[in-house]
């Protein structure tokens, strides 16, 4: 008898005519950014997240956020930094939400697993990945940004909002912890 009955409350759609124009102006930049960075951001998300199924969601959301903010698109040289920052932030909140047992993202990509199952499964088995998951979140973030995204220590510090000293500390402790984890019998 209890039947939830959601009723979407969408405000009146008022999409102006310049919508089409906006699409036209940014597709080139989008395609360019997509080709250049999408895959590496997917890797970044995969390394940061426990939950591989949401990698693509996180990267999609990051692209949407960064590209729908006109101010960011004006500075193509900063696009990658914005994208990475957003992926880091979203990965954190995705993690946090997962911990809380809540729904991950509102609109998951459909049939995530189908095409990429093989690659993600392989990732699941990767010893490094499993070891990385054992690290503290900060340590993992520092290692991934530093050695996967090839950021400098100060870029990492800025992205994570911590001091350079902390970056160094998390980095060395992370490597030490990783070394122990990797040497432990699988």
């Amino acid at each position: 008898m209890i039947a939830p009955w959601p009723v979407a409350k969408l405000p009146a759609e008022a999409r102006g005519a310049d919508n089409a124009m906006a699409t036209g102006t940014t597709v080139d930049h989008l395609t360019e950014t997509y080709r250049a960075h999408y895959r590496s951001l997917l890797g970044l998300a995969a390394l940061l997240l426990d939950d591989l199924a949401s990698c693509e969601d996180v990267v999609q959301e990051a692209f949407i956020r960064v590209h729908s903010a006109r101010g960011r698109v004006r500075e193509p040289e900063k696009t990658l930094a914005y994208l990475r920052q957003t992926v880091v932030n979203l990965s954190r909140s995705a993690l946090r939400r997962r911990i809380l047992g809540l729904k991950l993202l509102s609109k998951p990509m459909p049939d995530m697993a189908s095409a990429e199952e093989g690659a993600y499964e392989q990732l699941e088995r990767d010893q490094l990945i499993r070891s990385m998951r054992g690290l503290q979140r900060r340590q993992r973030e520092v290692l991934v940004l530093r050695y996967f995204a090839d950021m400098t220590e100060s870029q990492v510090a800025e992205t994570l909002g911590i001091s350079i000293g902390s970056v160094k500390a998390y980095g060395s402790r992370g490597i030490a912890a990783l070394r122990v984890a990797m040497e432990a019998p699988a």
């Binding site: 999609q60 590209h67 690659a119």
Partner: peptide
């Protein structure tokens, strides 16, 4: 570790629709 991860085939198209 992440070398084999590829975007979904329709990923770019989804972005083209979602951003506007």
């Amino acid at each position: 570790a992440v070398r084999d991860i590829e975007p979904q085939p329709q990923a770019l198209n989804r972005l083209r629709q979602a951003i506007p």
